[in-house]
Design a protein around this nucleic acid. Sequence first.
DNA 1: CAGGCTTTGTTTATCTGCGGCACAAAGTGA
DNA 2: TCACTTTGTGCCGCAGATAAACAAAGCCTG
Lengths: 413, 413
Amino acid sequence: MKNHLTPLEPKADKATVRRHNLSLVLRAVHDVGEATRAGIAAHVGLTRAAVSSLVEQLLEHGFVSEGGKTSSGQAGRPGTVLKVARSGPAGLGVEINIDYIAVCVVDLAGTDRVRVVEHVDNRGVAPSEVLAHAAGLAARAAGSAAEQDLLPAGVHVALPGLVTGGSVRQAPNLGWQRVAVEGLFAQALLALRPAHRALPVSSDNEANAAALAELWFGAGTEGVRSFLYLTGEIGVGGALVLKGDLLRGAHGFAGEIGHMVVDPEGPLCRCGARGCLEQYAGQAALLRAAGIDADAGVPGVFELGRRARRGEPAALAAIERAGRQLGVVVSGAVNLFDPDAVMLGGAYRELMDWLAPAVERELALRVVSGLWTEGGKRLRAASPLGDAARGAAGVIVREVLEDPAAYAERAAR
Amino acid sequence: MKNHLTPLEPKADKATVRRHNLSLVLRAVHDVGEATRAGIAAHVGLTRAAVSSLVEQLLEHGFVSEGGKTSSGQAGRPGTVLKVARSGPAGLGVEINIDYIAVCVVDLAGTDRVRVVEHVDNRGVAPSEVLAHAAGLAARAAGSAAEQDLLPAGVHVALPGLVTGGSVRQAPNLGWQRVAVEGLFAQALLALRPAHRALPVSSDNEANAAALAELWFGAGTEGVRSFLYLTGEIGVGGALVLKGDLLRGAHGFAGEIGHMVVDPEGPLCRCGARGCLEQYAGQAALLRAAGIDADAGVPGVFELGRRARRGEPAALAAIERAGRQLGVVVSGAVNLFDPDAVMLGGAYRELMDWLAPAVERELALRVVSGLWTEGGKRLRAASPLGDAARGAAGVIVREVLEDPAAYAERAAR
DNA sequence: CAGGCTTTGTTTATCTGCGGCACAAAGTGA
DNA sequence: TCACTTTGTGCCGCAGATAAACAAAGCCTG
């Protein structure tokens, strides 16, 4: 008798093979954009016959659609063009943030098809009320999607806080504590759409969703599959993507970079500890250091950017110092995780030009063995195309792409 | 045309299914220790018939062996006992460290069967010489293994440094830089055993190997599948294990916790930066702070332990301060990585009793949302059963367990 | 102690998904 | 027009899992 604990993955059989290859072919079509059966066969290593059979099934369930013939210009019979269907299954993403709620529907191909944003101050509002509001927007978005023949396969909700097991453990910026997000949201959504079938609801941290958006939809960062993502909002959020997979940690709380320590004897943080990064590179601290009214919120960052652009010394000094301290912590994270790149999102994007040099300097100094300087420029601004709502929708899309058979079975019932 | 870059995993077919289930059954036998065909069938979800066929193949290639009948005492026909073979394929692990070289042969069941340790000061010695020495010990161990009918399936070499792509990029404590470890070692080993077939050689960081040893062989930490592993040697090494998998990072350098920052203005580290953890909680710093001759090396830690046990204030204060600073960095890593536990290995094990309270205090204070205090005691001393050499051998064993078919094919040629 | 019950492990037939091959379809080029 | 090339689709065979039946080898009970 030894350790009974190593969890064994499930057995494999014909059905497993079919599921796997079905997803493989679908993702091949997805990645290539336009493909033929023969091309896919060559790409994934299956026989043309096998691909034919798989594609037939994918067509049947509406995951892909046939276009015209491929007028290649080269010799041989032209193939029939295959594309990911622009109607059918879709992802519904919801981002609940401090001062807005964003909803977004993404189709299987990854294009943004519906977007609803509403600016509301959610601070201090009862969680159930906020969730009901978000569900309302989601229902509206689902309606618009239906007009385009898009059917959400699920909803993914992103929130600024510690999320695990379907509920928010705490979200200081919203003032939430122990809120059963998935349950409440599902309930509210069902009440709004009694005729429809219940959508599976999942949830995650907002920074995680934004990082995934960067991974899937980010422009200019295509080759990067491992990165540390930072988002400078009220707090400092973080997420880790490693080889194309989000690192969630043992309980789902990974990436909380905002409370890593800059100076153990530093200013008191609202988390109770001293010298957290948030107290140096968070928005409030940054604005305060630059002499801007911190209550201004998001616009304050634009004001800071404006002053920096004008070359005001106080602004530049404040950003430089925050950058240095950000760099200290980020280099620690880089040493620990060895990513390909670091992406600065959120408010940091606005200040990138003045922030980056200071961060770079610390990275070059502190990342062991000069690894940082060798790999070329790896500190980047996050793409504006990636927002948390879109990333959240992407999570649903990804689930469908990774097991289309499961979705088809669910839809059949 | 979109991103051609999402790497697609290989296709699945009959062979894949067979390989997968073969490994599944083998690992089931491994985990349970003693099993019957029917028991395994129930455990992994396959039919008894399928398991029979798979077991037949495993018997044929010598991965498992049949024992007697299971005299259960309950009704029904007794089953034939299956065990992982105690002869046949094995793992050969080599640990090259600053002042010793350890070699270890582990059988498929995970038991230590051969062990060779030699104390030598490797500092300043030419890499090729050290590797030849290690290869000599490995050859000797392989000889002893052969007498017990154990045949190494490969060699895994663990070194204290940054290891990637088969070579050491830098190992400051050894004074190595850009050494093609795998090539040199394989060459030396082949020269020593001309009659044998070449063993596949792989390599990794020493802390990684030690962490894996903790995962696979550690006593008292069976349930823990995600942890941060620290080893206090000359430097401070680290490794991350997430859900039973080692987290290697994009280039294989993850876990370098020794150069995370305690105080950006702190003492200069040999890495060129200021205030690295190593300068506070490394052995040299720890001994210096306690007023012990730092050149004493490993024995110095025992001396420090002795003084702490006697209650000498200087020793206790030095350990306490190091613990506090270790705690600051570790809590940052915990925030970032969200593990189940933190394991202290190496020299820290010796000082655990006095180190732990200080580390715990910082963790309780700094890990966001009091997550640390909720989960019960999660700061643990690493098990003495897990050393890097054994972990390295385990890597080879693991490879065989995870694809026995591949090993059988290789062995057949 | 004989017969029933239970559990194990093997045997046989069946099913299904992929590989291989041949072949019709649909283009280009001389 | 004919040779050549490439695509997509039948058709057959193979292999591996399932399902069901069966022999084997122990308990339990009257």
